[in-house]
């Protein structure tokens, strides 16, 4: 409404005309806001951003364990294949530990992902 009265004093026109100018102004802003359909898509995306904080927390919860477990499985398979028990398990558990730490750092965004 402030805009409408502003136009009044600016243009010094009839009241109906000032209202029209205000409405045109509103239409302008509306159209600019809508912009292209692409920005509307960005709007829809923001809903995902809101929940991605919680999603992040859920991600972190299992990344580390998964790294250690993957290392353990690989170590176990290596031991089974080459009969190197228990060295494969030990080495790959350590590597798995490192991978778990890497996973956590990566999903926390502290280290860049692979190939980036």
């Amino acid at each position: 409404m402030a805009q409408g009265s502003n136009h009044h004093s600016d243009q010094n026109d009839a009241p109906g005309d000032g209202d029209l100018a205000g409405r045109l102004e509103r239409l302008d802003r509306e159209i600019e806001k809508r912009g292209s359909p692409k920005s509307a898509g960005a709007d829809g995306r923001s809903g995902g951003d809101a929940s991605s904080g919680l999603a992040q927390a859920f991600r972190l919860s299992s990344e580390f364990v998964a790294g250690v477990v993957a290392g353990g499985i690989v170590g176990f398979l290596v031991d089974k294949l080459f009969g190197s028990s228990p060295w494969g398990l030990i080495v790959f558990l350590l590597l798995g530990f490192a991978a778990g730490v890497l996973n956590v750092l990566r999903s926390a965004g502290l280290v860049k992902g692979p190939g980036q």
Partner: peptide, 20 residues
């Protein structure tokens, strides 16, 4: 060493995904 860690990290993905 880094490549081994990366491979294990890659292998841990389905585990992490499914276990979570």
């Amino acid at each position: 060493l880094v490549a081994a860690i990366e491979v294990i990290s890659f292998l841990s993905r389905p585990i992490s995904l499914s276990v979570r």
